[in-house]
Amino acid sequence: MRKKLEGNGLWESSRMMLPEHKVAINEHEAVLRRRQRVELDEQEWEHVARSVTESLQQRQQIKLRLFHPIEELTVIGIVDRVDQLKGRFMVDGEWFPIGDIEGAVIEE
């Protein structure tokens, strides 16, 4: 009962929504939340390339932000291999596409 007086309670307890309408709203909201790819400029790419190389050659831990349509995706670890031909890199035994990288930081 108390909920009616808090937050959005008055409106959530009094509305009339068809379940099918709610589903449509939630699907639409999910589409709106889809993330767009971040386009990196030349300078940012250079920074990413330098960080990845540093991690690969000096066994430094790196934190990479990757594109994912829904989630916030971060890969943390040491770059083991870089496969320029297939456009991918390996961190802790797992391959990731180089094109998905949105940012990189070498962890101290």
């Binding site: 937050g7 959005n8 309670g9 008055l10 409106w11 959530e12 929504m17 709610k22 939630n26 909201e29």
Partner: peptide, 12 residues
């Protein structure tokens, strides 16, 4: 009434 206009309200 201080309730917010909450777009995600149907996802609870």
């Amino acid at each position: 009434d201080d309730s917010p206009v909450r777009p995600g309200t149907h996802e609870v």
